[in-house]
Design a protein around this nucleic acid. Structure first.
Lengths: 145, 145
DNA sequence: TTGATTTTGCAAATCATTTGCAATATATGC
DNA sequence: GCATATATTGCAAATGATTTGCAAAATCAA
């Protein structure tokens, strides 16, 4: 992950943004935890370093516009995770019972070449997509929930 | 759509819920407009009948739990549309430039039989999914946005 | 129709997120 | 390394979406 951090630090510099404690801390959390986190969850782990919730939001917004993180909207709250450039493209399995979120690497949009199909048929140029799969994870299924 | 309304009215009755002016009005909007609407947009068209925004939210929440409508989260705000049982299963093409939302009938999740594949590989039982495709619609593309 | 039960309107509360502004941290040129 | 210009932060208050408490009104079942 050092690589990623260094790379992003450099990228911020190039774009005229400072490398600050807040941004570094938020990014550390995002490179450490694999599942998409809410701003408040990120804040919980960085507030001990005296970083404010507003700064977390501001950092996330900046990262989003720079395509460093992507925002996923799940169940009313926005969640953030490293963008595809820094983590392989993937989707999520969200358990309706326990809320656990896992990744799926298989992307049916790519597999079906849907982007090209849509472009040909409708003229719409797909640039990105969000796919979230909901259901019951193995252990909740076992528990009969 | 009369059919749909009748059917849902019946369904509410069976589950011990009343058929009220507010619920009927919200449903009428949803069966009339094809794209997913925000609560406030629905309210705008039913407030002339003296229906309160809270009631719109309450109706939507009830419909959602009864699987009559589904909630789609796009760009921070929740939007609602008739559930798959009342409209063919579909996904959305959301234009990043003008905000226009169109349907796509092709479902790559079904095409790739992803649900079974995931179940076999991970034990996770997929029950539903959300797929939203973002990009530029034909006319925004033409306008060079 | 009537009484029991649900639902509604309204206003206030809540939750996630954003913003204004003065104080502080980071970056740049010497 | 230091001073200074610029960008960023913390804090508190503002905002926008959604939810809730409660008394009044609508719906339901007999």
């Amino acid at each position: 992950m050092r690589q990623t951090m260094q790379h992003i630090k450099h990228l911020l510099g190039e774009q005229g943004h400072s490398w600050t404690r807040a941004r570094s801390a938020v990014l550390t959390v995002l490179t450490t935890v694999p599942s998409p986190l809410r701003a408040e969850e990120i804040h919980r782990t960085v507030r001990s370093s005296g970083i404010n919730l507003s700064s977390v939001y501001r950092a996330l917004r900046l990262f989003e516009t720079l395509n460093i993180v992507r925002r996923v909207e799940l169940g009313g709250a926005a969640r953030y995770e490293l963008a595809d450039d820094y983590r392989h493209h993937h989707h999520h399995l969200v358990c309706d019972a326990c809320g656990r979120i896992d990744d799926v690497a298989t992307c049916p949009v790519e597999a079906a070449d849907l982007t090209r199909q849509i472009r040909k048929r409708t003229g719409f140029a797909v640039r990105s997509h969000v796919l979230e799969l909901f259901g019951l994870c193995r252990s909740c299924r076992r528990d009969g929930r």
